[in-house]
Design a protein around this nucleic acid. Sequence first.
DNA 1: CTAGCTTAAAGTCAAGCTGACTTTAAATAG
DNA 2: CTATTTAAAGTCAGCTTGACTTTAAGCTAG
Lengths: 236, 236
Amino acid sequence: MFGASTRLGPVSPAAVTVDLVILTVREETLHVLLVERGNEPYRGLPALPGGYVRDGETLDAAAARELEEETGLAAHRLHLEQLRAYGEPGRDPRGRIFTVAYLALGPELPVPSAGTDARAALWSPVGPYLDGTDELAFDHGMILRDALERARSQLEYTTVAAAFCAEPFTVADLRRVYEVVWDVPLDPSNFRRKVTKAERFLVPTGDRRMLDAGRPAALYRRGDARLLSPPLLRGA
Amino acid sequence: MFGASTRLGPVSPAAVTVDLVILTVREETLHVLLVERGNEPYRGLPALPGGYVRDGETLDAAAARELEEETGLAAHRLHLEQLRAYGEPGRDPRGRIFTVAYLALGPELPVPSAGTDARAALWSPVGPYLDGTDELAFDHGMILRDALERARSQLEYTTVAAAFCAEPFTVADLRRVYEVVWDVPLDPSNFRRKVTKAERFLVPTGDRRMLDAGRPAALYRRGDARLLSPPLLRGA
DNA sequence: CTAGCTTAAAGTCAAGCTGACTTTAAATAG
DNA sequence: CTATTTAAAGTCAGCTTGACTTTAAGCTAG
């Protein structure tokens, strides 16, 4: 099975895992799902949820399985996409372990302790892990930074922002997603003009949502457009 | 080393390779570097160049090494970036082999037969592999399609198009890259206005290039900008 | 020398989009 | 009824865009 390694050079078998960056917006802040490590290495440090890819399992299936195990939610209800692979030789002290990172985006989710996996999983604001205040196990800090940059960029060119909103949602809900992920304030009026003009981004339900104060807001569901044209660029 | 597999389920060791999608523009057509397979499986079929990631080697280093072996060119002269990982259980009949695909872009390169690797490597137009006329080994057809879509998208938002041009180059050289990769004609005047206005995309050398006919064109080198703002969108 | 060809580069202009801002709408609380 | 709150629509100058025209600068044929 690995006969070619003789010709190609020293190649030992390796392990392949998937790691998940599950992002959500809670209380006007971007949160990531982390698990506390119960074993060495990095015992006690928070880490991204993940696990080995099993025999006969695709990468996407492994990511979906881990997602359901950690959140207790059906994976098809979240946006899930591959981020990239990481394989630095020293990234795991136990040996050569490659990981394929996935980015998952979802609306405010139930407290994840209901998951099958018994490890303590919790939502944490991403801030302290981005600015270096707090540490993550392995190279998960880098993976988190890459994932966030991907998410920020995706908001510009795609409709994934709606994946952060539980349906039905208002234009203001959607705007708050952009403001929290990009960490900039946006003009409500101009934002509305753009997202409602984009084809098949938002589908009006006809209903309205009434809060304790103010005019009721129209409610929408996600349209079937995947790309946003024209894009919604940050950095005026 | 793989002690955790008991708890996580059946996990056999796997092999990890890198595969390269090396693109260039020759004779007004987009070409990809392919090697003919000398062994089973898929003997005789063209495939993307690639090979096993060696012990102690990073993914990027493995990709750069394969690139130099196949093209005979110093990898730092080309644009090289990770595309994504592929790991379908059945993608290689020899066993569980994950591959991390890389996208490389470069100016018209010397005939790659000068490479260290003795396999027959050749530049092929991408067309027949995209529309299904010709087949590639393994899942390399899908990888090529993903790579091309990535390249097309990158041209919109980044300055990588200049990686296809040997320095120094003219605005018309750069425009031909866009036209070939996107497969659309562009207005020369409007194209010039945009790329010359973009900050740090093009650096004038002060020289001019004279062809057999027409006014001499100003020559440029690549600037240090990586992102294009505003972006250059296709699909008017 | 100059007319004519070729390609580069600059200019023109109406239409559309953007950002900053103002106005109107529709609900609740007191 | 009025103030308050949030939603949604409207205004407008300035910028960008796409389609197109004009000028520039080389060459070559006559």
